[in-house]
Design a protein around this nucleic acid. Sequence first.
DNA 1: ATAAATGTCTATATTTTTTATCGTGTATAA
DNA 2: TTATACACGATAAAAAATATAGACATTTAT
Lengths: 151, 151
Amino acid sequence: MITQKMKYALKALLVLADEAAKPAPEALTIEAIAKRSDSPKRFLEHILLELRNAQVVISTRGRAGGYSLLMAPADVSISEMLRLIDGPIAPLACLSRRAYQRCDDCTDEATCRIRKVFAEVFWSYLLIIDSLTLADMLRSGDVADQVIGKA
Amino acid sequence: MITQKMKYALKALLVLADEAAKPAPEALTIEAIAKRSDSPKRFLEHILLELRNAQVVISTRGRAGGYSLLMAPADVSISEMLRLIDGPIAPLACLSRRAYQRCDDCTDEATCRIRKVFAEVFWSYLLIIDSLTLADMLRSGDVADQVIGKA
DNA sequence: ATAAATGTCTATATTTTTTATCGTGTATAA
DNA sequence: TTATACACGATAAAAAATATAGACATTTAT
């Protein structure tokens, strides 16, 4: 299960992406994003800060300030957002490349049967989720999908 | 990330499966399973109880009592164990068939872009993980895999 | 300048989940 | 009938998730 925080993050990114797609996009205040994404403002604040630190969005301060998408939607990887907001996506810490951690009680990683079976699942899973971006989310909302039933 | 509890459950199942594969399998006490799987006994107790309620293992009481595998390893689905021990495996509650729950703030499930993108990932993921069983874990531990490098 | 609007950052609080442990009861077999 | 083992409910500590609050910094309009 993805966390509520991740849902807020994705909703916020969708709001920003929708705004960026407009003819004359403007920076959106945290409040505006919170309203449009139906997220708690003070919580969203922290989420946006993380997205900013990761260079996914950009912010400007002061009057008429706010947030805008910095990366192109096609470059915003869903799996990277998951890692950023929810932490490692590997089923076991010992399978994570960026957040690798040996299991406390592990005697031999090479022969661990739990590790081995989840490794198989994980690589396949990564293949799928690593290919998805914010752009895919934007597309999946368009009319064609609903009419043609492509999704 | 799977929980520690799930790791204990899988380790216990491996212990029981290994025992079942012996020429003269015996019921193993919680203590014996705890020792062999390096799990906390009193915690494992509850895990085994859940496995028993799910008819995955069977227990006998009293002297010479203990736990044995009830289902054949090939019939013990990893994804079912995940659902049993860790709960729903869907990334969103609204995508879970058995633990379906509408999102609080959801206005229209059919057009939700978060739901749609995770649905795609989830079906593919299910295809993989639903096919795995305890038997696959046993196989992946055998000597051939390590020598031939099949896994 | 200064005031208003806005993001930044740290601290704190609440709730839920995870990870257990304990005590007592029940069943079985020697 | 006693030793051995599972059964079951209660409780508790630690960690994670989900926020909220307050003080501060920055920018722009006037």
